[in-house]
Design a protein around this nucleic acid. Structure first.
Lengths: 228, 228
DNA sequence: CAGTGTGAACCTTTTCACAGCA
DNA sequence: TGCTGTGAAAAGGTTCACACTG
């Protein structure tokens, strides 16, 4: 059967989760893993694991499971993590600093190559082993360091300006932590992480749980928050 | 028509996004907004906005649009944001500190009520106007401050232990920033934010863009990253 | 015979398109 | 006339269940 080149979006979002679970398993020196075990570790069900992995090809062995090391390799290849990616962080406030020092990036092939801020007073300050540069230097930094991904950690009101500067400088992918939607030209990818949004979603389900107290109001119990 | 009490999960995840856009619009003193305008501001399409809002009830006016202030009120009510929620942050490293100082929480009704860390050496240290407390104090803090939501900002290896402590202390909702899956008893909600996962997803699409260079390989162009 | 790979059924979400209302 | 609200259609994602294989 010809393998379809395109992997469903939902699968793409889960591959990094499997990858981490697999790396943990590898460290625990597991040679092989079943879809059941991997599902458990990733917090999904095993049918989903098998479907997802089948999009990569037939890398499992019936009656045995998947070879951990080989599967790690395949997922890395599929996600483009065999190379490492240089990222630039724009906006070195609390969040920017936390991101600059976040070990999870380096562990997974993302190298924080540069830090920029619009505040001239901050320029020259050291964070970890990088020096904060002025945002005006972006074009040179992107070019020099071959930066592919820009991370926006500025306040909301600066985000669009910085996004424009990143794009102008040649960055093609943007991860936006600012609590505002930014617009970019076609061909540039954006993902948005909004810390407060996640809390609001939790609050919704928390509130709904409280409603469980007066269950008698209706026949059917109020649903629990769906597992992800 | 009887309005169904249950709002689709996909809609719940978008309500906070609409809410923010609406608050921005309100600040720009817009009295009314059409589904088209709101869609633009939220980065989705207008049919989705109308479907989503229709789950809250019929709050729009045909030929005119939605009353911004009223819609804000309705979404807040639906999300349970009319009260404010006390949260505790566990693990006061770089990320924990950034979260403790993050304005976006307070702005949206989340009050950081306590900070805890397992490292006794950190106890007593001040971050903003809170003092770091020892993780052992969790039960007392949760009780006293009526904490509903716990945020885990510890390293991966401490996350499960802290999650257990939070649940033990009475927290019913957990936002997990640690790069590991945690398990909790039924009835406790967990959402997970993984900073590196988002980067990995971007890398996937970035890599795919690179593949566009050799478009001739196949008839159909490689798809762009789907908009969220 | 344990566990993958996968059609088929099912469910959720998105999009379309337009009737109906202010 | 302009824009909401919503059935109906389409797309996308999940789960089931089992044939098949190492």
């Amino acid at each position: 059967m010809v393998r379809d080149r395109s992997i469903p979006e939902a699968t793409v979002t889960r591959l990094p989760v499997y990858l981490r679970a697999l790396v943990d398993l590898a460290e625990a020196s597991a040679g092989t893993v079943s879809s059941d075990e991997l599902a458990e570790a990733a917090g999904v069900n095993s049918a989903k694991v098998r479907k997802d992995l089948s999009h990569l090809g037939s890398y499992g062995t019936r009656g045995v499971g998947y070879d951990v090391a080989y599967l790690i390799h395949q997922i890395r290849r599929e996600l483009g993590l065999t190379q490492d990616w240089a990222i630039v962080i724009a906006g070195i406030g609390n969040l920017g600093q936390a991101l600059a020092n976040y070990d999870g990036f380096a562990e997974r092939g993302f190298r924080v190559a540069a830090l920029v801020d619009a505040d001239v007073a901050r320029v020259g300050e050291r964070v970890g082993d990088l020096e904060i540069r002025h945002v005006e230097d972006l074009p040179a930094l992107v070019e020099e360091l071959d930066v592919a991904i820009g991370v926006i950690a500025t306040p909301a009101n600066a985000a669009q300006v910085v996004a424009d500067q990143l794009v102008e400088a040649g960055v093609r992918s943007v991860l936006n932590f600012a609590p505002v939607m930014i617009t970019v030209p076609p061909g540039v990818s954006v993902r948005k992480v909004d810390l407060a949004v996640e809390l609001q979603i939790l609050a919704f389900y928390e509130q709904r749980k409280a409603t469980l107290a007066d269950v008698k109001r209706r026949g059917r119990a109020v649903a629990d928050m769906p597992a992800r």
